[in-house]
Computed example of a mutant assay.
Amino acid sequence: MSILIVEDNPTNALIIKHLAKKATDTEIHVASDGASALAMCHAETFSMLLVDHFLPGMSGLQFVKAVRLMERYEHIPIVMITAETEPRLQEEAKAAGVTAFLHKPVEAVAFRQLLTDHLGNSALQKSA
Rank of each mutant, 00 (worst) to 15 (best):
H18E: 13
P56T: 10
L114M: 11
E84C: 15
S32M: 06
V51C: 12
A35S: 12
Y73F: 11
F54E: 04
P10T: 04
A39M: 11
K94T: 09
L124D: 13
G120P: 05
S122E: 15
K126G: 11
H75E: 15
A31K: 04
D25A: 12
L89P: 00
H75D: 15
E92K: 09
L115F: 06
L115C: 09
Q90K: 09
V98W: 01
A66G: 13
T26V: 09
F63T: 04
S32T: 05
T99S: 03
S59G: 02
M1Q: 05
L55Q: 07
G97M: 04
L114K: 03
K17A: 06
G34S: 13
E107R: 05
K65M: 07
N12F: 10
H103R: 11
P87C: 08
L49M: 09
M58N: 06
T24D: 10
Q113Y: 13
A37Y: 00
F54C: 04
S32I: 07
I28K: 00
A100L: 07
L119N: 02
K22W: 13
E84M: 15
L115Q: 08
D117P: 09
H75L: 15
I5A: 02
L114G: 05
F111Y: 07
D8E: 14
L4I: 05
L55R: 10
A110S: 14
L61I: 03
T24Q: 03
K104V: 12
I28M: 08
A95W: 00
V98E: 03
R72V: 07
V6G: 08
I78F: 06
K126W: 14
V6F: 05
K94W: 05
T11Q: 12
A20H: 04
G57W: 04
I81Q: 07
M48C: 10
A23G: 08
D25I: 08
Q113E: 15
A93F: 06
S36V: 14
T116H: 15
L19G: 01
L19W: 07
T11F: 15
V64Q: 11
T26K: 01
L38I: 08
T82L: 09
V30Y: 03
V106I: 02
L124N: 07
L19I: 06
P56R: 11
D117V: 12
L14T: 01
R68G: 05
Q62R: 08
K94G: 06
F46N: 02
L4F: 06
M1P: 02
Q113N: 15
T85E: 13
V109I: 14
H118K: 08
E86I: 13
H103F: 11
L55T: 07
M40E: 10
M80L: 12
G120S: 08
M80W: 03
V67S: 02
Y73I: 05
A37Q: 00
T26A: 08
F111M: 04
I76S: 05
H18R: 12
N121K: 13
M80S: 10
A37V: 00
Q125C: 14
H118Q: 09
K21L: 14
P10V: 03
